[in-house]
Amino acid sequence: MPERIHGRGAQSAAVPTRFGLAEREVDGDWRDHMQSLDGPPVKLRTTVTEERPKSILTFNQSPDVPFDRSINAYRGCEHGCVYCFARPTHAYHDLSPGLDFETRLFAKPNAAELLKATLSKRGYRPKPIAMGTNTDPYQPIERDYRITRQVLEVCLEARHPVTITTKSDRVLDDADLLAALAREKLVAVSISVTSLDPVLSAKLEPRCAAPAKRLAALGRLVELGVPVHCSISPIIPAITDEFIEATTAEVVRRGVQSVNWIPLRLPHEVAPLFREWLAVHYPERAGKVMSIVREMRGGRDNDPNFHSRFNPQGVWADLIRARFNLACKRAGIAKVRFELDCSRFRAPEMGGQLRLL
């Protein structure tokens, strides 16, 4: 059985091959000499590089996602979720979607400034901005950088709607802003709960908040009047699917009235990373898990096509779907859509100058 890397989701560097990137060759530098004597470093340190992009809003035309613009204050994510579909984005920068994705992070300190400038442009038309679509806006480094909070402050000033997706109870650090945004119908928050087992969560999502903390955060947001959603995702067959019914009942008990599920997705380098993770943590059922995944994905590890990527097919998919629907029916959950208000948007002031109109 492969040796486990403690405290991290990925179990290797997972060198990308799609862009012709070769594995790092031994060149005789001090790192090679050190590792020849001591072996690879026992504890991987997290590093953060500050970058200053020229734009912060990313627009998309994907037909199967409910937003057309997003902000990612960070690149890479220390939460280390082994199944994260965003891991391959690190390959664009000659970095590993494996351990680099969760240890070599990038922060964008000027995100709020860029957003303010974008919203001030003549002709800008507001639609909800999605945060947390690629990496978690409340991962641990947000505690120091507070970039997400600064972005929310701009949204409140401009009366601009925003949605947040996270796996962290750190979202409550901004409870004051979220409550203020909620009163103006400008925010909705989604927290994903993958399982109710803290031991399993520590393997799957080693630096995320424990399930109990996420549940508590959901309940607190309900108390604050913030529209809140729980995503039971990803559902990993033979690993996390046993929690469908219990998680649904638990979040409803805390006042949550919007729940969905998303199947496991394994694009590009995520598939071999996930196989390594199975070999380390669940070698006895690795074959079964991947067999079910392929059965739901038309015989492949992943289905990249629009619409079907979020809608697996086959007997196993039908079973999970039926169980989820029954759990929602028993809990009294109907489909809820949070409508955010775009009508009162006002372009923020720039440089202290007053708006003419």
Rank of each mutant, 00 (worst) to 15 (best):
A238Q: 14
A179G: 05
C230I: 00
Q313K: 14
E242A: 15
R275T: 01
R159I: 03
Y145G: 08
E25K: 15
S291A: 14
H90I: 00
P267I: 01
Q353V: 14
H281L: 05
G39H: 06
A246L: 06
G332D: 04
L57Q: 08
M131Y: 08
C208M: 11
S190M: 14
N302G: 07
N311F: 07
L224K: 02
R285Q: 14
I71N: 14
S195T: 15
D144P: 03
I164R: 06
S343H: 14
A130T: 00
R159G: 12
S36W: 11
L266E: 02
L221V: 01
G20P: 07
V151R: 12
H268I: 03
H160W: 00
M296S: 04
E23N: 04
P97Q: 01
R207A: 08
S258W: 09
L21W: 09
G332K: 09
F85T: 01
V171P: 13
A22Q: 12
M131V: 01
D136A: 12
E284C: 10
G351D: 00
A188K: 08
F59I: 03
E245M: 02
K288W: 08
P198H: 04
R146Q: 12
G39C: 09
L326M: 10
L172S: 01
D32Y: 04
W261I: 02
H33D: 06
Y124Q: 08
I333N: 07
P109M: 04
R254P: 01
L218I: 04
T194R: 10
N305W: 10
L340K: 07
V256S: 04
G314E: 03
P66L: 09
A212S: 09
D301I: 05
S291C: 06
P140S: 07
Q35R: 15
L57N: 09
R183G: 15
R355I: 05
D303V: 04
A73Y: 13
R75V: 02
L224M: 01
E78R: 08
R45V: 03
L354M: 11
F345Y: 11
L115F: 04
T47M: 12
A182N: 06
C328D: 00
L152D: 07
R104W: 07
A180M: 07
E113P: 10
T135M: 10
T148S: 14
A286Q: 06
S36V: 04
L221K: 01
D29R: 15
I235A: 14
R170I: 01
Q353K: 13
P66S: 10
H93R: 15
I320R: 15
F243D: 14
K185M: 12
R254D: 00
Y92R: 14
M34Y: 10
P234E: 06
V65P: 14
C84Y: 05
R146Y: 12
E284G: 09
L278M: 13
S55Q: 13
H79G: 01
E269N: 12
A271E: 07
